[in-house]
Amino acid sequence: MIIKRFAKEWPLHLLLLPAIVLVIVFSYVPMAGIAIAFEKFIPSKGIFRSEWVGWANFQYMLEYPGIGRIVYNTLFIAVMKIVGGLLVPITIAILLNEVRKEVFKRTVQTLVYLPHFLSWVLLGGILVDILSPSSGIVNRLLGTFGIEPVFFLGSNDWFPYTLVISDIWKEFGFSTIVYLAALTAINPALYEAAEVDGAGRLKMTWHITLPGMLPIIVLMATLSVGNILNAGFEQIFNLYGPAVYESGDIIDTFVYRMGFEQVHYGLATAVGLLKSVVSLVLLSVSYGMAYRFAGYRIF
Rank of each mutant, 00 (worst) to 15 (best):
K45T: 00
Y287L: 14
N227T: 15
P18M: 13
N238H: 11
A270D: 00
I298V: 08
P133W: 05
T209K: 10
D252N: 13
A294Q: 14
S27W: 03
L12V: 14
L118P: 04
G124D: 05
I2T: 07
A270M: 00
V121Y: 05
I47T: 05
K170D: 01
V218P: 00
F41V: 04
R257Q: 03
P43W: 08
G266S: 11
I20K: 12
W55L: 15
F151N: 14
V103T: 12
V25W: 03
Y296G: 02
L114V: 14
R100W: 01
L122A: 15
V103I: 11
E39W: 08
V83R: 08
V88K: 13
I36Q: 04
V244Y: 01
L267H: 14
W52V: 15
V225M: 15
Y287V: 10
V21A: 07
E51I: 15
W55D: 07
I77C: 00
L283Y: 09
S27F: 03
L223G: 06
F41M: 01
P18G: 13
I216P: 02
L62A: 11
N57V: 04
L62N: 06
M220A: 15
G146M: 12
V83P: 01
K8Q: 05
G173W: 14
R140C: 00
E102G: 10
L14G: 11
R140T: 03
S247D: 01
I77K: 02
E192D: 09
P115K: 11
V25Y: 07
V128D: 01
I130N: 03
R140N: 02
P43L: 03
A290W: 07
T110W: 09
S224F: 01
S132D: 05
A294N: 14
I186P: 09
T269L: 12
V271C: 14
F76Q: 12
I67K: 10
Y72R: 15
L283C: 06
G146D: 10
I20Q: 12
G125E: 02
P215E: 14
S132H: 12
S286G: 10
F38T: 02
M204K: 15
R201I: 00
E51C: 14
A243T: 15
W10N: 08
V29T: 01
G154K: 11
E102C: 09
M80A: 12
P11K: 10
R5A: 11
V285T: 10
L122P: 02
T162Y: 09
M213A: 09
P89G: 10
P242D: 01
L190M: 10
R297N: 00
Y240P: 02
Y179V: 09
I42K: 15
K275S: 11
P242K: 05
S284T: 14
V178N: 04
H13E: 01
L239A: 11
H13N: 06
L12A: 14
S247V: 08
